[in-house]
Write a protein that binds this DNA or RNA. Structure first.
Ligand SMILES: [Mn+2]
Ligand SMILES: [Mn+2]
Ligand SMILES: [Zn+2]
Ligand SMILES: [Zn+2]
Lengths: 144, 144
DNA sequence: ATCTCAATTGATATAAAGTATCAATTGAGG
DNA sequence: CCTCAATTGATACTTTATATCAATTGAGAT
């Protein structure tokens, strides 16, 4: 199940969305980028392949994918939202308060907690993002 | 240690920032609001108390507080960043993909995971945000 | 209490990011 | 093929964020 393009495409269709040419191009560019990209950044990438694609279409596609829980917008210091891929429903970051560097990790102990919370609030969990904030080694030196 | 205003003020001074009149007003308004407010939303609130406060000052204060790990910007559906209070270093959300409703909860099992990750990446953790995404009870009915 | 100067402020201008609209196009089913 | 609702992309606009800089202010030194 590593075919993310297939996963994304299927989910779109399952929810009644058409798999149009524009959307295919956008999905490919998004997945090729690996995520951590802004909407307008993605517009640029997409247009290298298909110059005709409209900015609105990219924005709208990102919104749909977010609703489906396949991606999520997060802040990365700058003003624009950065979209991250929610492969298998989760994503984990260490974010440095000093330099905004982002370190990725895979460990996750949230399944149990998810079940507990899910039951209590009658909420169907599709995925999660955990972000630890703090200072990386470099930034601790500087401000020491 | 429930005096958040004291906590915030002290932290500012400990890091060499002046505790100015403008900053005091902004801190009070932010804490009174309970968080979950946008920068421009906070500007409005602040100006009810002190009409002279500049918009840039509010933006800059929010940036400082973010660097210190006292607040964090998160997405809430709309285009503007919403700032949440990081009391005791953490904050937890259930975010509905259907209606963007936000449910708060307190449980946390991340201390152990934090220690593990902190050691491996030589990263000093100040706090974290966990967001579970999914569908609330109401939204499951609608799309059923 | 007054002085001093770097830190801070806020007005102004500008850029970036997001949203609304609508006529033209397209794709999936009949 | 046809049909028609879904989708697209150009355009215009609003909101949100950032850059600049002269004027002001706060906190320590005298
Ligand atoms: Mn990531
Ligand atoms: Mn909250
Ligand atoms: Zn850092
Ligand atoms: Zn909902």
């Amino acid at each position: 199940m590593d075919d993310q393009l297939g996963v994304f495409s299927n989910r779109l269709q399952q929810h009644g969305y058409r798999l149009t040419t524009a959307r295919r191009v956008i999905l490919e560019a998004l997945l090729a980028s690996g995520g951590h990209i802004t909407a307008d950044g993605l517009v640029e990438v997409v247009r290298q392949q298909s110059p005709g694609i409209g900015r609105m279409t990219v924005y709208r596609t990102l919104e749909i994918l977010s609703e489906l829980g396949l991606i999520r917008p997060v802040y990365q210091g700058t003003g624009a939202a950065h979209y991250i891929l929610m492969e298998n429903g989760h994503h984990h970051h260490l974010v440095c308060s000093g330099c905004d560097r982002v370190i990725e990790f895979d460990e996750c102990v949230l399944e149990e907690m998810g079940r507990l919370i899910s039951g209590r609030f009658d909420f169907q969990i599709q995925g999660h993002v955990v972000e630890f904030f703090g200072l990386c080694a470099d930034c601790r030196r500087v401000s020491a």
